[in-house]
Simulated assay, not measured.
Amino acid sequence: MLNDPDIKPDADILKKALGRAHAAYETLAAAAGAAGLEMTWNYYKDGKAWLCKVVYKKKTVFWLSAWDGYIKTGFYFTEKTRAGVAGLDVDENIKTAFARAGAAGKLVPLSINVSRKAQVRDVMALAEYKKALK
């Protein structure tokens, strides 16, 4: 949704872009901050859109993008770290989809579309797992 390189996402722009999912975004941003995660919006020419990189120290924990009515979060795991996701306290549908996901090169993607505040709990469980990985 955010594809104008001259308009950096701010609170007002995100509120308009996300619509009903804005409350979930605010909840996620607050939880990320409390967990020591830093959220930085950058424009990426290859995708022609603004993406939010969420990092812990120097490690990329996940990516976030704004869509009409939801936030898309993207995590990337290796085959070695993939198994740990199955043991997390997250929605079973997430685990099932991830178990079926194929690798893209050396990484296995895990995407969650977040439209409700309740889903932030799953995103943060994955973020904490990713943060703890070496």
Results as ranks from 00 to 15, higher is better:
Leu18Ala: 06
Ala125Met: 10
Gly19Trp: 01
Ala127Cys: 13
Glu92Cys: 13
Gly87Ile: 08
Lys57His: 06
Ala23Gln: 01
Leu37Gly: 02
Glu26Leu: 07
Thr27Trp: 01
Gly36Ile: 11
Ala103Gln: 15
Lys58Thr: 13
Gly69Glu: 00
Arg100Met: 06
Glu128Leu: 13
Val85Met: 07
Ala127Thr: 13
Lys80Ile: 07
Thr78Glu: 09
Ala101Thr: 15
Leu18Cys: 06
Ala31Trp: 11
Asp122Trp: 13
Ala118Trp: 03
Leu37Pro: 14
Ile94Arg: 03
Ala99Cys: 06
Val123Tyr: 04
Arg82Gly: 05
Gly19Asn: 03
Lys15Pro: 04
Ala86Thr: 15
Val114Pro: 04
His22Asp: 07
Leu133Gly: 07
Phe98Asn: 06
Ala118Val: 15
Leu110Ser: 08
Pro5Trp: 01
Tyr70Met: 04
Gly69Ala: 01
Tyr70Cys: 03
Ala35Val: 09
Val61Asn: 05
Ile94Met: 08
Lys134Phe: 07
Val61Trp: 06
His22Ala: 07
Val123Ala: 01
Ala23Pro: 05
Asn113Gln: 14
Thr81Phe: 02
Ala83Val: 06
Cys52Phe: 04
Val85Pro: 10
Trp50Cys: 11
Val61Arg: 00
Lys15Asp: 12
Gly36Lys: 14
Leu64Val: 10
Met39Arg: 12
Ala21Lys: 03
Ala127Met: 12
Gly36Trp: 10
His22Glu: 04
Lys8His: 09
Thr96Phe: 00
Leu2Trp: 11
Ser115Ile: 08
Gly33Ala: 06
Gly36His: 09
Glu79Gln: 10
Tyr129Asn: 07
Pro9Phe: 09
Tyr25Arg: 03
Tyr43Asn: 01
Lys134Cys: 05
Trp67Gln: 11
Ala132Glu: 12
Lys53Leu: 11
Glu92Asp: 15
Trp67Leu: 04
Val55Leu: 09
Lys134Ser: 07
Arg121Glu: 13
Phe75Glu: 04
Leu51Ala: 03
Cys52Tyr: 00
Val120Ser: 01
Lys16Glu: 15
Ala29His: 09
Leu2Asn: 01
Lys59Tyr: 03
Asp89Cys: 08
Asp46Cys: 11
Leu110Arg: 09
Arg116Gln: 05
Trp63Ile: 07
Leu18Lys: 01
Ala127Leu: 10
Tyr56Thr: 10
Val90Leu: 04
Lys48Glu: 15
Ala23Met: 00
Ala35Trp: 05
Ala101Ile: 11
Thr27His: 04
Lys15Thr: 02
Lys106Trp: 08
Thr60Met: 10
Phe77His: 05
Ala104Glu: 06
Lys16Tyr: 11
Asp91Gly: 13
Met1Leu: 14
Ala132Cys: 12
Arg116Met: 02
Pro109Val: 06
Leu126Pro: 02
Tyr44Leu: 06
Leu126Glu: 02
Lys72Val: 06
Lys15Glu: 14
Arg100Ser: 05
Tyr44His: 12
Ile71Asp: 02
Lys57Cys: 05
Ala99Val: 15
Gly19His: 02
Ala35Gly: 00
Ile7Val: 02
Asn113Ala: 09
Glu79His: 08
Ala31His: 09
Gln119Asp: 04
Tyr129Ser: 00
Tyr70Trp: 10
Ala34Asn: 15
Asn113Cys: 10
Tyr44Val: 03
Ser65Tyr: 02
Pro9Arg: 07
Leu110Ile: 12
Ile13Asp: 00
Gly102Lys: 14
Asn113Glu: 02
Lys48His: 15
Arg100Pro: 13
Lys58Ile: 08
Thr27Phe: 05
